[in-house]
Design a binder for these strands. Structure first.
Ligand SMILES: [Mn+2]
Ligand SMILES: [Mn+2]
Ligand SMILES: [Zn+2]
Ligand SMILES: [Zn+2]
Lengths: 144, 144
DNA sequence: CTGTGAATGCAACCCAGTTGCACCACCAAC
DNA sequence: GTTGGTGGTGCAACTGGGTTGCATTCACAG
């Protein structure tokens, strides 16, 4: 029994082949992947249906098995949080679209996240998304 | 000469009727609007072309006349920063999609934004996007 | 006037993500 | 064993926010 299979069982999902393959593609990554990136990786070892992927990713995100983030280009990116780690933030390269996971979690409710805002929030906070935008080192070295 | 016309001139844009109408729709809002929200408001006082709106909003965003943000539902929201204010963050209601602008700017490079991350960034930072997700007061009062 | 570039309008297109529905495997009840 | 329900997958069609191409109009300098 792999740890991914356990993860699925803990979340009330059968560890099917498709699900395990998707988790495998996401495990150990330090960047957040587009659905299409994942699809391409999956299809390197056999056919895989697009809709199954999208539906599975959505189910994973609902159960917090993966994190789903909206990048600056309006496409979702998916990544697996490190074990026992909460939300983490990302560095998004506006030139190449690469979205690196940053180490160190951040927590909803941390006062320091809104240093200059004394007013109460206009609702019940559930999650905090922090995205750092810029040019990644690879793009910088390619052309400054 | 309205202040919006000045704003356009300062950014090298002719203050055309279409542009002024768009800025007018965004001025004084305390929420970030979808393109479609803006279009609906514009069409309340006469016809307005969808493509002109999108192109104009893009030109405004490039010149930082408006801020463009990607909400959790993968649609862009547009808002005008208060005068002399930099980037600000938003509260996004995952139930109704309303995206409230939060008062108080945040600055790229503030150390406090990444409290638990000592590692250097994997690139050159240009902007910081902070989105607080949750359920807004209106939705809470409607059904908890 | 007249030429030039900027701005606008309309139609067609793009494409990540979604929906509908058929199919299949599995298991439990009859 | 047959039936019926459930969960997962596959294929095709669809959605809709946003974009592109291109023709037309406008502003204004020469
Ligand atoms: Mn990540
Ligand atoms: Mn705003
Ligand atoms: Zn890059
Ligand atoms: Zn709401």
């Amino acid at each position: 029994m792999t740890s991914n299979a356990c993860l699925l069982r803990e979340n009330g999902m059968e560890p099917t082949d498709a699900r395990l393959r998707i988790l495998e593609a996401l495990s150990g990554q330090h960047i957040a992947l587009r659905a299409q990136d994942i699809l391409k990786a999956l299809r390197a070892n056999g056919p895989f249906d697009k809709v199954t992927l999208y539906r599975t990713l959505e189910a994973f995100a609902e159960r917090s098995i993966v994190q789903r983030h909206c990048a600056g280009d309006r496409t979702y990116r998916y990544c697996m949080p490190a074990p026992d780690e909460g939300m983490h933030s990302h560095f998004y390269c506006t030139r190449c679209g690469n979205m690196a996971c940053l180490t160190g979690q951040h927590e909803p409710g941390m006062g320091i996240l809104r240093p200059m805002d004394a007013a109460p929030l206009p609702g019940r906070l559930q999650a905090v998304e922090i995205r750092l935008d810029g040019i990644c080192d690879a793009c910088l070295s390619r052309q400054g």
